[in-house]
Amino acid sequence: MIKLENINYQINQKLILQGINLNIEQGSTTVIMGKNGSGKSTLLKILNQIIQPTSGLFQSSLKQPIPMLFQKPLILKNTVKYNYQILHKIKKFQMNTSWFDEFKLSALEDQKMNSLSGGEKQKLFLARLMSFDQSTIFLDEPNQSLDLESEKLLTSLLIHEKKNKTIVLTLHDFEIAKKIGDNFIYLENGKILVQNSSQQFFNHFSS
């Protein structure tokens, strides 16, 4: 579905990603892990064609970028409901409104964005993205700012969604990664340090 061969990405003379080889199969869940600044978000943006690699071979069955969850998503100075709906108006996307209730946002719908906590905002961003009903989902640290309960909700939703979707996400949390991932990548200084399926990957870090 998405294939990367010897991908490099450089910005202002600095190499962010080096020699990335990666194959993302349709229907799989790929978890990209690594320390801050290791290149996780950049790799995710390359996979979603938001930025172009400096060199290397990139092949994707996606014709153009698709809505994805960014680390600092767009916030418009308006109500929660407005922020949920506004991005659908750009291309008149069909909106799946069930995600609004799924993330228990109905009680907050008339509140202004600046009155929301970090976790509540993150739930809105997740619900907003999921409402696009895409068969491929790119998520950049989806569990950031979430409390334990919301994190459990996110994990169970991802476990449910992965049955019929291709998911690529960046994470710091090994526990969540273990529960939802099929393939794992660990990045360090822009290079893939470990790339394996579940058991081998976690064995590497436990040894």
Binding site: K45, N48, I50, I51, Q64, P65, I66, P67, M68, F70, P73, L74, L76, I86, L87, I90, K91, F93
Partner: peptide, 18 residues
């Protein structure tokens, strides 16, 4: 804003308006 809005299919005009 550009990176995120382009992923939603926004044009330059849409980005400016937003």
């Amino acid at each position: 804003l550009k990176e995120e809005l382009l992923s939603y299919g926004a044009s330059q005009r849409d980005i400016l308006m937003l």
